[in-house]
Design a protein around this nucleic acid. Structure first.
Lengths: 303, 303
DNA sequence: CAAAATAATGGACGCCGTCAACTATTCTTT
DNA sequence: AAAGAATAGTTGACGGCGTCCATTATTTTG
């Protein structure tokens, strides 16, 4: 239970924090967008297979409001919609070049406002404050987030593909070749999926997909670990290990003797999870077709 | 300058924090008030001499909006207005009993929502998070708040009286006798104010009064330090010492040889400031008329 | 195949908050 | 002391964010 002093602490923080973000909000409004619109643009930009309904679920916005907002976005040339082959009720939403431009402009404005509030702090103070905020976020999230790991559904495929591409691309600046490769291997995986030998698990945070891991039979007694991915905000909180444990348990239950995985050198956090579970690097190969200086590594684990 | 990682940290925090307070906001709305209305009620409750204009300044709300809101409050029996003797344009605003009841109800709702978000955290985690938030608040405030210390104006008198009462009363549960005493000594001080021997300085944070200190001649070569007060959110940040320094500089400049002050035992933070500047306790007297167990202390400093 | 669920749209509406115009009073200036 | 500027507060008009309800088209379910 919180003491009155602690509640006062929190409210004191709340007051100055709200004040800080009031200026951010004002700057966004100045640029011609509401806060909600900015959030919607952010969500659209994150996914290649975004629908109105997904946005409604993730942001908690009214259906009709969303419909009107997207209509407006389309009219203003920020987004365009494509039909889904499978379900003709659904229209996928994509940012146009102009939409991405506008979104970047809004991000810049926001970042500049935040930076302004921090500009008088020393480097050490900035570091201390950021650490404090991350710590707070993690503790609050760990206490309140509802986390589930479940087998994949058809609708997860697009999530896995699009987030895999986006995260790898954004974080490691991989080339377009890599993008096509991801499409190929994921669709291939799903097509040839065998429940007895393969698995693809999705980690959900508060009902929203936030990570994945897969196991695929690669030969007699040998499995390949694939599609290991965590949303940035879920990292360093133990969820990577939980996904990995479940995947390795699956391997042991199916009688695999060896698991290997392919990754690229730059993935520092994932590397730590691999090491924790006993994987060791067996080889590395240059992959210039995926980007300059990209090196693919092969890691193995004897079960 | 902030690094991209640090901006991501802040935005990550922002997202979960906003989500947390979204539920608080929803609960307040459920109770029939908007966030702005809640803030206005809070400000009214804090001061005994609150005016529409003060609220506008402190909360950054539009004049007309405020006018309508207060009209509604009055109609609903939350507040009542009294005329100012000095300026007939001004109407002082006070909470009615019902208004205070409603305000307490809203505070309870808010506190319960906050407590709910923290309830799954361990005692240590709660402590760590609160400390982190206070630290963040202080660093951001120290970097961005505009602090000024200036001689008092006529309009400060009501601030000094009302905050003195409220803070002492709220924090130490002093009796009504104390309240009458404060009225008396402040009005007496102002009436007999002599610029050559006395001073009353106001500390302003972002243009809003947030503390006070006074010096009054008590005898040949002897000054009494009075009305030393800091808003809770301004404490432990060095402003008490700055006020004290200015007051003691004034004393030295005016040729005083000795300064004394009267305080009550419970004032822990102020005591620390006194000690830092070389005051020492010379006597203590029980003051049962101000409340059970209240002990007044006399501290002195030779200049 | 009928009934229920889902994706998306459109109409009506309420409330928060802003802008501009106006009154009454007080302060400033010469 | 009178005119002009500034301040406290009120009122009308209005726009945009967001909600509620009804409706259509499509898919899933029993």
């Amino acid at each position: 239970m919180l003491t009155p002093d602690q509640i006062a602490d929190i409210q004191g923080f709340h007051k100055v924090y709200q004040n800080l973000f009031k200026t951010v909000d004002a700057a966004i409004a100045e640029a011609g967008y509401s806060l909600t619109e900015k959030d919607v643009l952010l969500e659209i930009s994150k996914s290649e297979h975004c629908t109105a309904n997904i946005l409604i679920g993730q942001l908690g916005i009214d259906r009709s409001y969303m419909s009107r907002m997207l209509k407006q976005f389309e009219k203003n040339g920020l987004i365009w919609k494509t039909a889904s082959g499978a379900d003709s009720r659904i229209r996928y939403i994509h940012l146009t070049d102009f939409g991405r431009e506008e979104f970047n402009r809004l991000s810049d404005i926001q970042n500049r406002q935040i930076a302004h509030a921090f500009e008088k702090l020393s480097v050490e103070d900035v570091h201390a404050v950021c650490s404090a905020l991350v710590m707070t976020r993690n503790k609050l999230s760990d206490a309140n987030d509802v986390i589930t790991i479940r087998p994949f559904k058809q609708s997860d495929i697009e999530y896995v593909i699009s987030r895999h591409k986006t995260l790898y691309y954004a974080e490691r600046h991989l080339s377009g070749t890599f993008s096509a490769y991801v499409d190929e291997i994921v669709y291939d995986f799903v097509e040839r999926f065998q429940p007895e030998t393969d698995c693809l698990n999705i980690l959900e945070c508060n009902g929203v997909p936030a990570g994945s891991i897969a196991i695929k039979k690669a030969g007699e007694g040998t499995a390949q670990l694939r599609f290991f991915m965590l949303e940035p905000e879920m990292r360093r909180r133990g969820y990577g290990n939980r996904l990995m444990e479940m995947a390795l348990d699956f391997c042991r239950g199916r009688g695999y003797k060896k698991v290997f995985l392919l990754t690229i050198t730059a993935q520092v956090i994932a590397r730590h999870v691999y090491e924790t579970h006993g994987f060791y690097k067996v080889s590395s190969t240059g992959k210039p077709q995926w980007g300059e200086g990209v090196i693919e590594e092969c890691w193995e684990l004897e079960l």
